[in-house]
Amino acid sequence: MNDYNIREMIDNKKGRRSTMFIEKMVPIILLVITSVSVLTTIGILVTLLSETVMFFTRVSPIEFLTSTEWSAFSSDPEWGIFALIMGTLKITVIAVAFAVPIGLGAAIYLSEYASDRVRRIIKPILEILAGIPTVVYGFFALTFVTPLIRGIWPEVNLFNAISPGLVVGVMIIPMIASLSEDAMSSVPNSMREGALGLGSTRLETVFKVVLPAAVSGIMASIVLAVSRAIGETMIVSIAAGSTPNASLNIMESLQTMTGFIVQVASGDATYGSDVYFSLYAVGMTLFVFTLLMNVIAQWFSRKFREEY
């Protein structure tokens, strides 16, 4: 028998070059892979910025910011981003006005009233609702919700803000419901018991104790939902139309920032034309809006985490 001892065996193994090489290389390879996510952000910023600068060498930034008309395809084009922002705002306001009460109501029910069994049934259904592709929601808005609204209210156009607004609302309900429910569930039970013990009803406990305690988590969920509604693309390109305007009328056709990007991309904007570069100026505006929302949401949820 060979007289190996354990010390030698370990040294033998340790000395093997390939093992040590792998150990040294792995962190470097993984770091390179990780840098892809940072490069993506840089890529987005550089692409949007450089092409937006190109756009502003052709169109004055003052017109972009102050004009209220957007007519990229006319022979005498106007480039007032405000018209597209108004479109996005109309959709977002309708969506949020519809989704926040319902999403919060659902969150309160799930966190404060529902039994474990009910929660186990309803949460997956909300997950399914969140997983439905937005192009399907767009079809639903155009072929089901719009005719329904026009049946009740005939002066509404085929393309309008109400139907896609409501459907975007449906799309963000699961997000508000599940994130707010998480926030409410993490309010310590002792606080609830304190309120109930002093004679509050369950409803009073919800409004006077649980909601105030969870408010920053709830705000974070709402702001994230707003960001999703602003960035939502397919529902609005299918059901909202393609006529940018800065009016407050929600019964007529409109265009959002995302809707414009899709319209240009699915048509043929010649590479290097004004319309082509406007794609990036609109994309940049959209990016700034959603980034702002995400930063606000992160601020809220950090605040919430500090509290508990």
């Binding site: 996510s37 092409e51 960001s227 693309t233 995302t258 959603t290 980034l291």
Partner: peptide, 24 residues
């Protein structure tokens, strides 16, 4: 920074990723 960057990336609208893909 990498972690914050990833959570911000999650909030970028898909249509903006489309613009990145188109250019890059």
């Amino acid at each position: 920074f990498i972690k914050i960057n990833i959570s911000n990336l999650a909030g970028v609208p898909s249509v903006v990723f489309g613009l990145l893909g188109l250019t890059l």
